Simulated scan of single mutants.
Amino acid sequence: MKTFQLTAEPRTDLGKKAAQALRKENKIPVVLNGGDVITLPYDKELKPGEKVVEIGNGKGLITTDLAVTQDAVRKLVYTPDIYAIELTVNGETRMAVLKDIQFHPVKDQILHIDLLEVNDKKPVAIEVPVKLEGHAEGVKAGGKL
């Protein structure tokens, strides 16, 4: 799998107005999901941009709110290839994959990106496009694909 280098900055202002202000600066709000699962109540100090989302059964998930520039993600989004993203935040590197992208319905501008953090400890299921080339021997003999 190809890798893509992406640098992001943590964002502390959350909500609709903060996201609109980011977009005016030609930046995109990004959420990095798939962090550590923790037991609630969580009393340790979180890094800038991190928050705890409750997932039930007294458990929580650490997510990170980030911002990236439109130019930084252009080659990641507008390509048929699948990339493993080396995400650098405050000098710390994390591995992630692209989970979801939201586009403006008229302008086709990127509004929001969701990333999924990956590591060796848990599997990640992703959709991979398959491109068929040539003809199978069974099809040549009259079968159907």
Results as ranks from 00 to 15, higher is better:
Ala72Tyr: 06
Asp65Pro: 03
Asp36Phe: 08
Pro80Trp: 02
Lys59His: 05
Ala72Phe: 00
Ile82Gln: 14
Lys59Tyr: 04
Thr88Val: 09
Lys51Phe: 15
Glu50Trp: 06
Glu92Lys: 08
Val31Tyr: 07
Gly49Trp: 04
Val68Ala: 02
Asp65Glu: 15
Arg94Gly: 00
Asp43His: 15
Glu25Ala: 13
Gly91Gln: 02
Tyr78Arg: 11
Gly58Arg: 09
Pro48Asn: 14
Pro29Asn: 02
Thr88Ser: 11
Gln70Arg: 09
Thr64Ser: 12
Thr69Glu: 01
Lys51Ala: 15
Lys27Trp: 06
Val68Ile: 10
Pro48Thr: 13
Gly49Asp: 00
Asp81Ile: 05
Asn33Ala: 09
Leu66Phe: 09
Glu50Ile: 07
Gly58Pro: 11
Leu46Asp: 02
Asp71Ile: 10
Lys51Asp: 13
Val73Tyr: 00
Gln70Asn: 10
Thr88Ile: 07
Val77Arg: 03
Ile85His: 04
Gly34Asn: 04
Gly60Ser: 07
Val31Glu: 05
Thr39Ala: 15
Lys59Gly: 06
Leu40Pro: 14
Glu45Lys: 15
Leu32Gln: 01
Val97Tyr: 00
Glu86Phe: 11
Lys59Leu: 13
Pro29Arg: 04
Asp81Gly: 02
Tyr83Ala: 09
Val52Arg: 08
Asn90Asp: 10
Tyr42Thr: 07
Ile38Tyr: 08
Thr69Ala: 05
Gly60Tyr: 01
Arg74Tyr: 10
Val52Leu: 00
Val53Gln: 14
Glu25Pro: 07
Val31Met: 06
Gly56Thr: 05
Asn33His: 10
Ala96Phe: 01
Ile85Tyr: 00
Val77Glu: 00
Ala67Ile: 14
Leu98Ala: 02
Pro80Leu: 09
Ile82Glu: 12
Ile82Cys: 09
Lys47His: 12
Thr63Asp: 09
Val73Lys: 02
Arg94Gln: 05
Thr39Tyr: 10
Gly60Ile: 05
Val77Asn: 03
Gly91Glu: 00
Glu92Phe: 05
Glu50His: 06
Thr63Ser: 12
Val30Arg: 04
Val68Gln: 03
Leu87Arg: 04
Asp43Tyr: 12
Pro80His: 10
Tyr78Ser: 04
Asn90Pro: 02
Ile85Phe: 01
Val31Leu: 09
Gly35Cys: 09
Glu86Val: 11
Val52Asp: 03
Tyr42Ala: 12
Val53Glu: 11
Leu61Ile: 06
Gln70Ser: 08
Leu76Lys: 08
Pro80Thr: 11
Val52Pro: 07
Leu61Val: 05
Val53Ser: 11
Val53Thr: 07
Ile82Ser: 13
Leu32Gly: 03
Gly34Gln: 00
Thr79Arg: 00
Asn57Arg: 15
Tyr83Lys: 01
Glu86Thr: 10
Asp71Ser: 14
Lys51Glu: 14
Gly58Glu: 14
Lys44Pro: 10
Ile38Trp: 03
Thr88Glu: 14
Gly91Lys: 00
Ile82Lys: 14
Leu40Met: 04
Gly49Lys: 13
Val97Gly: 02
Asp81Met: 09
Lys44His: 12
Lys44Gln: 15
Leu40Val: 15
Leu66Cys: 08
Asp43Ser: 13
Asn90Ser: 08
Arg74Lys: 12
Thr93Lys: 07
Pro80Ser: 08
Ala67Asn: 03
Leu32Val: 03
Lys27Asp: 05
Thr93Arg: 06
Pro29Ile: 06
Met95Ile: 05
Lys59Glu: 07
Glu54Tyr: 14
Asp71Leu: 12
Pro48Glu: 11
Asp36Leu: 10
Val37Asn: 11
Asp65Thr: 09
Asn57Leu: 11
Val31Ala: 10
Gly35Trp: 02
Pro41Gln: 12
